[in-house]
């Protein structure tokens, strides 16, 4: 894959202090993808996202509105998790979904640190649904529908470098207004959807202490050990099997010759090994 370098990749910056909560972005998203009417379901989360709502506005204290959408991580957990590669990072940057490959295991939903992917629980042919950062529109040279629709430029589109610079510029210009942090810059490996805010946004994740390690990097040691483990186990088993086989053959000939029971040595080697598996 010929991904854009991280700095040049597309990104969205949402300035929480600017959002007026008009939900034009939600409407634009639904119109672009012809998403069905949404009714509250037993399985929906109270953040407004669903298989028919790919972005939503969350109301917080003091008339603060936070737009929730897929974060399009630089190292996405969902892409690493998907066993059939239905979730991919596109060349342009957005994390996109290929419904033709998907087999519906929902591992992506389990591993997403932001809890973004949603499922068509009510359909007999269900798919995983999430924001794709208007990948088809980007290919046409347009910007995502949500950023285009925003009446107050609270959410803007650009390259990641530009937007990071803009975010830091805004924080520097009005340090009293913002919390001095760009959400999505570093944590969990960094993301393409960035936030600056006057309220704490840790509720967008599971409210836990996040470090900057990306999720896929946590499983990497175990995954790298797979082939060595296989070779070691096969080799050990073949070796041990061969040794014990040979010893037992010798013993049998000994037994024939001396006709005496000599099996205690085999027993002791056995117990040690069965513990190791």
């Amino acid at each position: 894959m010929k991904h854009q370098p991280d700095g040049k990749t597309v990104a969205i910056l949402t300035d929480v202090t600017k959002c007026i909560g008009c939900r034009d972005c939600v409407v634009a998203c639904k119109q672009t993808y012809n998403l069905d009417k949404d009714v509250p379901r037993r399985w929906s989360n109270d953040d407004g996202l669903s298989s028919r709502n790919w972005t939503s506005i969350i109301e917080r204290e003091n008339n603060t509105f936070v737009r929730k959408q897929c974060r399009h991580c630089l190292e996405p957990a969902c892409v690493a998790a998907c066993p059939v590669g239905a979730l991919q990072i596109s060349d342009e940057g957005p994390v996109i979904y290929d419904s033709k490959k998907c087999m519906g295991c929902r591992y992506c939903m389990l591993v997403c640190p932001y809890g973004i992917p949603r499922y068509d629980w009510d359909l007999a042919v269900p798919f995983v649904r999430k924001c794709i950062m208007c990948f088809p529109r980007l290919q046409e040279g347009k910007q995502p529908a949500c950023t285009e629709a925003c009446p107050v430029e609270a959410t803007i589109f650009g390259t990641r470098d530009e937007l990071l610079a803009e975010a830091h510029r805004r924080i520097k210009a009005e340090p009293d207004k913002y919390i001095n942090k760009v959400w999505g810059e570093d944590e969990i490996g960094g993301s393409r959807v960035l936030y600056i805010s006057n309220v704490d946004l840790s509720f967008l994740t599971y409210g836990k202490n996040y470090d900057n390690k990306s999720v896929p990097s946590l499983a990497r040691p175990a995954m790298n050990a797979v082939l060595p483990t296989f070779a070691t186990m096969a080799g050990t088993m073949a070796g041990v099997g061969w040794i014990i086989n040979r010893r037992m053959k010798n013993m049998q000939t000994d037994e024939l010759e001396e006709n005496q029971d000599n099996s205690s040595s085999a027993v002791s080697s056995d117990e040690g090994d069965s513990n190791n598996g």
Binding site: A80, C82, V84, A86, Y107, M223
Partner: peptide, 9 residues
């Protein structure tokens, strides 16, 4: 369809 990075794969 292969994704060798996936534990589930």
């Amino acid at each position: 369809f292969w994704n060798p990075h996936s534990p589930l794969f």
